[in-house]
Design a protein around this nucleic acid. Sequence first.
DNA 1: TCTTGTAGTAATCAGTTGATTACATCAAGA
DNA 2: TCTTGATGTAATCAACTGATTACTACAAGA
Lengths: 208, 208
Amino acid sequence: MSPEEGQRLASADRREQILAAASVVFGERGYAGGTTDAIAQQAGVSQAYVVRMFGGKEKLFRASAQRAAAKVSEAFRGAIATFDEGDDTHDKTLKLAVAYTELVADRGILLTLLHLFSLGHDESFGPLARSCFLDTYEIVRAEAGLSPEEASAFFARGMLTTTLLAMRMPDAADNPTAAELMQCTFGETTTDLIALSQGQHPLNSSGL
Amino acid sequence: MSPEEGQRLASADRREQILAAASVVFGERGYAGGTTDAIAQQAGVSQAYVVRMFGGKEKLFRASAQRAAAKVSEAFRGAIATFDEGDDTHDKTLKLAVAYTELVADRGILLTLLHLFSLGHDESFGPLARSCFLDTYEIVRAEAGLSPEEASAFFARGMLTTTLLAMRMPDAADNPTAAELMQCTFGETTTDLIALSQGQHPLNSSGL
DNA sequence: TCTTGTAGTAATCAGTTGATTACATCAAGA
DNA sequence: TCTTGATGTAATCAACTGATTACTACAAGA
């Protein structure tokens, strides 16, 4: 991950490196459970530097969540760019779903967003959560051209997929009920999603 | 909430009271962010008693999550009991969705479960999360008689609904995009869901 | 009435964590 | 070469939090 240990980096590079680490840690442990020390270790810098660079844990989480939302938007726009003239709704939805699948490769992105969404009651994070979600919804509606019903159904499947991955349902793939549920939910992307989620480290040791 | 302040209660009653308080606090702040002290205040007892009665925060969260899952199962079984001979899939799904809507009246239930699901990586909570979810899925499959595809679609909508409520999207109902999304997602239960979610206290003061 | 088990708390402790401060190190320009 | 600003850290602190201990108060049965 880090480009040679003990290297001095430009501020922007170090910032991105810390954000990537924050995505992993906040994704696994949530805002309250994710410590700045764990993020610092994951990024290979000192805890003090993490806090100072972002001006506090709260601002770091905001930046981390915004980065995650930006990656989702980016992935969807990339898929929309591949739309062809003759694509019907099913074609479009599948392309969007595949783009979504690729996001899963970085487990932290979707999990950090899930944690953000669970903070809707918070004065600071609530508005951010709603605007991040609605921005993405707008892309699927306006730029991809899906109807409200189609977009709602797309996000419904997306949220169930995210939830199943969050609870590591693929770890229970030997359970027939779990396998049936994942098969129906993930559809054509089942094999990819299970494979992607298998190799993912549960953060180096320790509990919450 | 408490039946007369300063009253001595039977162990079982106090236990239920603390579990209800835990549902509120864990629902708002998650496992890591929910303090035993906040739960004690919400229940009107001392922090020491909360910890001793359940043998620790972890066991309290387990009990709280299991109670939440049991309430969901109970609600679904209640809906299934109202199934008529001539009910088709749409009728059944609607009855289940209405039962789900009633769960929203206690915001803590669905949010505590959402937090449980986000702990899939945890050695202790991960298996619990998966079994709670699969138990509910089994009820909808076997007892309600939905096909795998129908059940998956039902849970997909359920997870999107839960997420939208978690992020308090009804608070942004004046936003046309948000209104459109909720209208399509909540369907026939839109008015009920928004009304239910309006009156819900964001826990008495304080931040995370 | 006396005893006893259960409900319940105040006080306190040790570990954790976000933040701050003072200091160290390096690279580039004058 | 010497200064200077930016990268980065060690040490430390105050607040918080889960847990423990020792204690009190009440209610029911003998």
